[in-house]
Design a protein around this nucleic acid. Sequence first.
RNA 1: GGAGGGAUGGCAGAGCGGACGAAUGCACUGGUCUUGAAAACCAGCGUGGUGAAAGCCACCGAGGGUUCGAAUCCCUCUCCCUCCGCCA
Length: 435
Amino acid sequence: MIDLHLLRAEPESVMARLATRGVAREDIEALLALDVTHRELLQRQEQLRAEVKSLSKQVGEARKRQETALADELMTKSRDLGDAERVAAQEAEEVGQQVRHALLMIPNLPSSDAPIGASEDDNVIGEHWWPGKDAGQPVPEFSEAQRKPHWEIGEELGILDLERGSRIAGSMFPLFRGAGSRLLRALGAYALDAHSDAFEEVRPPTFALTETLLSTGHLPKFSDEAYLMERDDLWAIPTAEVPLTSMHRGEILSEDELPVRFTAQTACFRREAGAAGRDTRGLLRVHEFDKVELFAYCTPEQAESVHQDVLARAEQLLRDLGLYYRVLDLCTGDIGASSARTFDLEVYSPGVDRWLEVSSVSWFSDYQARRANVRYRSADGGSPRFVHTVNGSALAWARIWAVLVEQGRQDDGRVELPEVLAPYLGGRLTIEPKA
RNA sequence: GGAGGGAUGGCAGAGCGGACGAAUGCACUGGUCUUGAAAACCAGCGUGGUGAAAGCCACCGAGGGUUCGAAUCCCUCUCCCUCCGCCA
């Protein structure tokens, strides 16, 4: 969440920054009014409380001096004040809840570097990369064979069985088979290994508590997007970002151990409630997919370089896989609610003739850390400060799988896979057509 | 799932109705001493809220209750440990 103290001190500038991502001025003003009321109620309650405590102490002293009458009188007085305090406390608590709830609904302040814009149409399209670019070769041209969509190739080769996936779990739950399944496993193992130099590998739980999703900002605002198991009050994680951000929830880290970096592959679950009927073909949009995530807690000073590092690592994977991709600098109107700055990586799918988002690399400033209460003590002492969090996909495998299969398709129908995967595929880089 | 034991500051660990935001030790920071270091000694050393400030308030796993007053008594829950049962 945003810093309430900052909002009180500089309401105009905060409102102006939030306006760039479409937050209504009235919402903030309502919050500020609630906050004033809350503090007034709090002061009244605390004053009553202080009087009760002071009287109680006097009761004990009077008892010790055997002054029973005085003790009884003080007790009566204290009891009445105690009743009044309970009422005041309840009022303060109620308004406090409202303040907290309103605060949880407010998105992060966008970075001043993020391009200003209203929607995804205003995102800034940055660098494009393709195999051979560094050697001066032109943008790739794709053959007729490569223009076949992956769902057709998948069926043709028997490596993607969407029909049986639907039978098991309903539509948009893909089922990979044989070499297709193995390819998915290879991709995950490859990426985890690629980052083991700096990121500790983690295998977190797939389900998480409400508190855990509140910490990243996926709740309370976006509850429609996540699967909930009501009986046990557990949510299926939409990304490994969720469990990883809570790894050190409530802790105070020391500056010299930062940045703390984790990488994890998990299944990611998305209800896609608002997207019903859109992009439903093949693997374009699915309810469950595997993804390797890179995550870091860092100091505010480290944040920019850590953010750039995660972006560079995600890009390096795409380059090593030989994929044609572009970088998007998301505008204020399109970045996620918790993010201050986000770069998306999109891969070109020749079979579908579209750019597919396969990574989103975000810097959250202290927004998530404040919600998750993750702080650090700086080396030169002083009060704890909130850490910054950064994370990025590296990568979302379902769509990568789709593009690899399309791009690797030869005229005879074979699919050739990138060399870097050889160690993870037992050296078998070709998927042959069914006999 | 059953039976017992536990949860206190960075860590260890006392306290079990009033002077306890909390002893003590360790760790850490500053100082004295020393050529320097160690040792010793002295001092400091939790977090948050609110307030212009002094201060006040909250926090001893979480939530509720009893009481004039709760770390301390009662209830519920969570987590950890030991034993039993079941199980991939």
